[in-house]
Simulated scan of single mutants.
Amino acid sequence: MKKTLLLEQAQESIKYNKEEWYRCAISRGYYYLFHHAVEVTGGITPKYGPKGETLTGGMHKKLYSYFLLSGEKDENEVNEYKDFLSLLGQCLKLQHSRRVDADYKLELPTPKAKAITSIEEVKLMVKKIEENISGSKT
């Protein structure tokens, strides 16, 4: 299955104008991001952080934790790639949280605006992933 199908499903779900479809859109959007993010680690979910520390939690938490830890910088350090990794970790963590809310916390409202915002944020982050993987910084 092509990853782009996940994005297409997310965008199509918005058109149904019902909360259950907004929840679906958030979930599909998250997985579109997840499958791109895991390419940054060579297709694997890391078990250890950049300094050899054991990462806790499930595969989703391990992945965003790895990026957050990999993006940490020393004071006054300038490193665009670490900035990218930190941003990726933050985005992945936020979108995972939204996906969990959409899929499991049915008592919480899921407005259309949240689904649209999530999809747009995911698209921007995937573009950054693709630029970093290809080596272009445009």
Rank of each mutant, 00 (worst) to 15 (best):
E72W: 01
T45S: 07
H36G: 03
L68K: 14
I116P: 04
T117G: 10
Y104M: 00
E120N: 13
Q95L: 11
L106D: 11
N132K: 12
E39W: 08
H96E: 13
E130V: 07
E53D: 12
T110Y: 15
R98H: 06
G42S: 01
I44F: 06
L33P: 06
S70F: 02
H35F: 02
L106K: 03
P109E: 15
C91A: 14
V38C: 00
I44C: 11
A37E: 04
R99W: 03
T45W: 07
G29K: 01
G42A: 08
A113S: 09
G43F: 06
L68E: 07
L92G: 06
V38D: 02
G29M: 02
I26T: 03
Y31F: 07
E107T: 12
L92E: 00
K47C: 11
N79W: 13
G42R: 10
L85E: 02
M125Y: 03
S70L: 10
R98A: 09
G71I: 11
L94S: 12
S118P: 03
S97I: 01
Q95D: 08
D74V: 13
S97C: 13
D83Y: 12
E53L: 07
T41E: 04
Y32P: 04
D74H: 13
G42E: 05
Y66A: 10
P111V: 04
Q95C: 10
Y64D: 00
H60D: 03
V78G: 02
R28D: 14
G42H: 13
E130N: 11
S86H: 15
Y22W: 01
P50V: 15
F34I: 03
E130I: 10
F84S: 13
E80Y: 12
L124H: 07
I119N: 12
Y48R: 15
K62Y: 00
G52D: 09
Y22N: 01
P109D: 15
K61G: 04
Y81D: 14
I119F: 08
G52H: 00
L94E: 07
R23N: 03
Y48W: 08
L124T: 05
D74G: 13
Q95K: 06
Y48K: 15
K62P: 07
G57A: 10
S70G: 05
I116R: 15
T54K: 15
A115K: 04
L92N: 06
L33Y: 00
T117H: 12
H96M: 04
Q95E: 11
G71M: 00
G57K: 14
S70R: 02
